[in-house]
């Protein structure tokens, strides 16, 4: 940590401000993995319930199309979240990869970094989850 951090006179409401921002960003980085989790649960539950008892209600193709449409929306959302996080990280602007310093600006960028990576892995996870829907055409 830099000495200047200790010497610096705190802004009267600096703490509150900083905390608010951190909290907001922390929530934001969980968004993409949450979408991934919902995608997983919804896809698996829908297909297993359908194949267990309700396969007379609709064609498998309809269920697959619906789930693939849901997937497309979720992927778009994750991509958007990832893009916002990438901008927050601002690696191209600052040239700084890992933001090792503990000030508010660094935390902000670091959370962008983490959010970007989480969005990336969530995107891959959702694509993998969807492959069975695309390749397998029946309940067997």
């Amino acid at each position: 940590m830099r000495d200047s951090d200790h010497d610096r006179q705190p802004h009267p409401r600096g703490d509150a401000h900083e905390f608010a921002e951190e909290r907001e960003s922390l929530w934001r980085i969980t968004l993409a993995p949450t979408i991934w989790a919902f995608h997983f649960v919804i896809s698996y539950a829908a297909v297993s319930v359908y194949c267990f008892r309700y396969d007379h209600l609709a064609a498998m193709g309809t269920l697959r199309a619906a789930l693939i449409a849901m997937t497309a929306l979720m992927l778009a959302a994750i991509a958007w979240i990832g893009w916002r996080a990438f901008q927050r990280w601002d690696v191209r602007g600052t040239g700084e990869f890992s933001n090792p310093e503990g000030n508010a600006e660094d935390r902000h960028q670091f959370l962008g970094h983490a959010g970007f990576l989480l969005a990336l892995i969530s995107f891959i996870g959702v694509v993998y989850d969807t492959l069975p829907l695309i390749v397998l055409a029946s309940c067997r």
């Binding site: 990336l120 891959i124 993998y128 069975p132 390749v135 055409a137």
Partner: peptide
């Protein structure tokens, strides 16, 4: 670290999935 494993695992997943219908034929 990212591209190679993602593509390799993806390819293996698709390959494995395409085998399943034959193994589960009626």
């Amino acid at each position: 670290g990212i591209l190679f494993p993602t593509l390799t695992l993806g390819a293996l997943l698709v390959y494995g999935l395409t085998l399943m219908p034959d193994l589960r034929a009626t």
